[in-house]
Amino acid sequence: MDKLSNMSVYIKVVEMGSFTAVANHLESTVGNVSRAVSALENMLDTRLIQRSTRRLSITDAGRRFYERCTKILADLEHAEAEASNAALTPRGTLRVHCVPGLARHLVTGAVLEYREEFPEVTVDLMLSQRMPNLLEDQLDVSILIARTLPDSAYVSQKIGISHCVLVASPEYLQRHAAPLTPEDLNDHQCLLLGTVDYVRDEWQLKSKTGDATFTPKGPSFSVNDMDAMAVAVRAGAGIGLLAGFSAIEDLRSGRLVRVLPEFHTYERNVYAVYTSRQFIDAKITRFIDTLKTRVGAQLTMTAQELIA
């Protein structure tokens, strides 16, 4: 028997006053109960219980040890219950990584909704283009956009899909005739988006009638952030790629216009990535549920509106 089991048996002996009563209570034997107490006495090198044929007598050291044992085991039970409850009730700090554009347009709203439902959780949201090391950075969840994820020991759940579309400002298209084919883009200022999942100098486009790859040429503007790209496009600097979730409000309001509206990029998956499939804290599972219901639904609605 291990130390904690021996302590538990010892507490019962003190409280019930009989090896036999404890053995019956635990469905064990008197010998096992006696060995548990003796093991503690040998470990402590002190007598806890004076035995006689008629009664047990707890020594002063045994009484002090009993009080300590009851507190230790009570604390342990409380810790176990608290840890088990973590699988049921979200609480504590949730550390989340997300790519910036997705965070600004969709994920921050999901975080606020999640906090309203689970106010005992504090959310620490970190924005970065690159996938972090969840263990080294002590992160609970990473939200990424990618065609596929690299092999790793992490677990992922797909939240939704995203596409980029070609957009420009109405002012730019007033100065430059809108392209009718991908080849016509050669006559335009093409603004280059270079992120982890988008090759800066190559636009891979697809449509119902066929695919096209366009390589922008000549001096232009390049940026690695979707929102900075949106600023440049709205300012009339040229034609650029924007994720549907980033462009949709400007397209609805008329601040931006689709260019080659039958084309869009290949779909990218939006993933929630975390470290383990077993014993997942409730704050993580409930947050992923919120991502699916809020972010996933918004991604689906945007795709249905933009990708005919």
Rank of each mutant, 00 (worst) to 15 (best):
Y274K: 01
F118L: 04
Y274M: 02
R91M: 11
S8H: 08
M301A: 15
K208G: 04
F245I: 05
L125R: 07
Q157C: 03
V259E: 10
L173C: 13
N85Q: 09
E116A: 13
Y10G: 05
T209M: 08
T89W: 04
D201F: 00
P100E: 05
V257H: 09
E27L: 05
E77Q: 14
L106E: 02
L149F: 05
L173F: 12
R294L: 08
L48N: 00
Y266F: 12
V223W: 03
T122P: 05
T275H: 01
E171A: 15
L73R: 10
E116R: 15
R234K: 13
A235N: 15
H97G: 05
R104I: 09
V223S: 09
M229H: 04
C164D: 11
D60R: 14
S162C: 11
L106R: 01
H264R: 13
S142R: 03
P179R: 04
C69I: 02
A74D: 11
A235S: 15
T265F: 00
M126V: 15
C190V: 15
Q157F: 01
R51Y: 03
V259L: 09
Q129E: 14
L149M: 12
A177V: 12
R95I: 10
Q129I: 00
K292H: 10
G31S: 13
V155I: 13
V121Y: 03
G238K: 05
L260T: 06
E15L: 13
